[in-house]
């Protein structure tokens, strides 16, 4: 698995376009939110900015990059080559997705640490970490499922838009309007409960027991994403 991950990491840094769109751009957007945090905190809260950081990096740095990578490796039959070796399917997927997942996690962590230094530390860092991990797991599952219906890297630019933009829209909606109105709907939409977790973890003021309830819909979406991945993911191009 590490051999595949090494190869992917080398390619990531050799392909400047991927590096720009998947990593520089989310960092730039996040940096803008952090820099203007007082303005955005007035509109929502500091937790809203944290949620936007998590979902922007998650949607573009992780989800879109993962779909593009998987579609590209399948289209040129590299996945088939890997399956001709001794490594198992989970090792192949793990190796392909490890670099983008680790980089996205490092990005989110780094940006949130800077944000914490600039604007003040989160109320519950452990809960925040749980929310970030759950969001990343969900987006990896969605990436595998989306890759199943994505024929090429170019096609990924279209197929990733609904979930990528949808995640950021959900984070913005809940971050700007609060979690109280339409609470059930906001908790059930994908990413909704995870957004509320981030808000609670950063802003505080909500009992831990109340926040822990949010783990149920969050992990339910991880489960749904994993099942969609198992159903839709393909190893070879359609004939």
């Amino acid at each position: 698995m590490l051999a595949i991950a090494y190869g992917e990491l080398v390619q990531l840094f050799r392909n400047r376009l991927v590096l720009l769109t998947s990593f520089i751009m989310p960092i730039a957007v996040s940096a803008f939110f952090v820099h203007r945090h007082e303005v955005f905190a007035d509109a929502g809260s500091l937790g809203y900015i944290a949620a936007i950081v998590v979902f922007t990096v998650g949607a573009f740095g992780l989800y879109t990059s993962a779909v593009t990578t998987l579609a590209s490796r399948r289209q040129n039959l590299f996945l088939k080559r890997l399956r001709s070796t001794a490594i198992g399917d989970s090792g192949i997927l793990g190796g392909l997705l490890l670099p983008v997942t680790v980089l996205a996690t490092v990005q989110v962590t780094g940006i949130l640490i800077v944000f914490g230094v600039v604007a003040g530390a989160p109320a519950d860092p452990v809960l925040l970490a749980v929310a970030v991990v759950a969001t990343i797991a969900m987006l990896v599952g969605f990436a595998l499922a989306t890759a199943g219906v994505t024929n090429s890297p170019e096609h990924a630019q279209v197929t990733t838009l609904p979930i990528a933009l949808g995640m950021i829209a959900v984070a913005s909606w809940i971050g700007l309007t609060g979690a109280e109105d339409l609470q059930l709907v906001k908790r059930l939409v994908p990413g909704g409960a995870a957004t509320e977790l981030v808000l609670n973890a950063w802003d505080g003021g909500v009992a831990l027991s109340e926040s822990l309830i949010l783990l149920a819909p969050t992990f339910a979406w991880v489960f749904v994403a994993a099942n969609l991945a198992a159903k839709f993911f393909r190893w070879e191009p359609r004939r």
Binding site: A3, Y6, L77, K80, L82, T85, A86
Partner: peptide, 27 residues
């Protein structure tokens, strides 16, 4: 060892890197 009728490599890796990575995966 398997030589498929059609299969791909990672385009941005070199020849030596490709052989090393795939070779490692054969165990």
């Amino acid at each position: 060892g398997i030589m498929l009728q059609e299969s791909g490599f990672s385009p941005d890796l070199t020849v030596a890197e490709s052989v090393r990575i795939i070779g490692t995966l054969t165990r």
